[in-house]
């Protein structure tokens, strides 16, 4: 039975209070976005709409869904995210584990090699040429392979393994005749659900939000992920003033009208594209459960 002291209760009150403030502050712009997605753009841009929808209209969503390319993008993104993340986990987890083992010869070199790439790289052009020479331009595969792992995630995962998988575990396993492979798959992984969940989330989100690599390496529109199509819409209204400078008056009318549509659509586009990931988080949360290590060492 837990004993709650007075200090504890004060702590709880302050904690809850602070968190509620955080909740409200963070939620406001989110509500704003939802409301803006169903409001008239003039009301939004003039500041009249500030919390609840003004001049309710579903036109933004209608146009968004009328756009066939959005659905194509969605399907592509799901493909890239699922398979990309699986690949990422398969490459990153074992490597990070090996890097966390103090008895792994070559550990320091590998560490340095990984960190070095976070700073120095040939840049876009040579990488593009390498990809071209591999024949991987304009393929779906390249989007899965690029970013097969990331230095940042490797290091974070390695840190996790270092600090939560004790050496005694490995020693007792070896005494029992385990190989590294069995140690990793049967013992370490099940204990690491939290970090697997986090990495699945990090990699998954990276894939979900990715657009730059697609823009650079892909030239067939059918292979584009969702974010590329969304960006076209978003960038369009930003670029409008520049485009207006050099067109005839009738084209100007159309561009202005399209920008207005882009304005209407952009908030809805954000919601449509981020909803799945936002929903994914609570589902993954249960893997961050306490007491994962319980019982592993005892006995």
């Amino acid at each position: 039975m837990k004993y709650e002291s007075r200090a504890d209760r004060i702590f709880d009150v302050i904690n809850y209070l602070l968190l509620i403030i955080v909740l409200v502050l963070t939620a406001y712009p989110l509500i704003y976005i939802v409301s803006a997605s169903v409001s008239d753009p003039t009301a939004v841009n003039s500041g009249r709409m500030w919390l609840w929808p003004v001049s309710f209209t579903l036109e933004g969503y209608q146009r968004l869904f009328k756009n066939g390319e959005i659905w194509l993008g969605y399907a592509n993104t799901i493909f890239y995210t699922v398979f990309g993340t699986l690949l990422n986990l398969a490459v990153t987890l074992p490597c990070a584990y090996a890097m966390s083992r103090k008895d792994f010869v070559g550990r320091k070199t590998l560490n340095f090699m990984v960190v070095f790439t976070m700073f120095f790289g040939g840049g876009l052009i040579p990488t593009y040429i390498v990809v071209k020479n591999l024949g991987l331009l304009d393929t779906r595969i390249i989007l899965l392979v690029l970013g097969a792992t990331s230095s940042y995630n490797l290091i974070v995962t390695r840190t996790f393994f270092s600090s939560s998988i004790p050496d005694e575990l490995r020693e007792s396993a070896f005494v029992d005749g385990c190989t590294n492979w069995i140690l990793f798959t049967r013992i370490v992984l099940p204990l690491s659900k939290a970090i697997i969940a986090v990495m699945a989330l990090f990699f998954g989100v990276t894939h979900w939000n990715a657009y730059f690599n697609a823009l650079v390496y892909i030239s067939t529109r059918e292979k584009y992920p969702l974010q590329v199509f969304l960006r076209e819409i978003l960038i369009f209204s930003e670029m409008l003033p520049a485009m207006l400078a050099s067109e005839d008056s009738l084209v100007i009318e159309e561009l202005t009208r399209q920008a207005r549509i882009a304005e209407m659509v952009k908030y809805g586009a954000i919601i449509v594209s981020s909803l799945p990931v936002i929903i994914a988080y609570p589902l993954l949360q249960r893997y961050f459960v306490k007491g994962v290590m319980l019982g592993a060492i005892k006995g």
């Binding site: 753009p41 003039t42 841009n45 003039s46 209204s237 409008l240 202005t256 920008a259 304005e263």
Partner: peptide, 10 residues
């Protein structure tokens, strides 16, 4: 630009 146009519309 969008905010400017919003003023025009009013």
């Amino acid at each position: 630009y969008q905010q400017f146009v919003a003023k025009g519309e009013q």
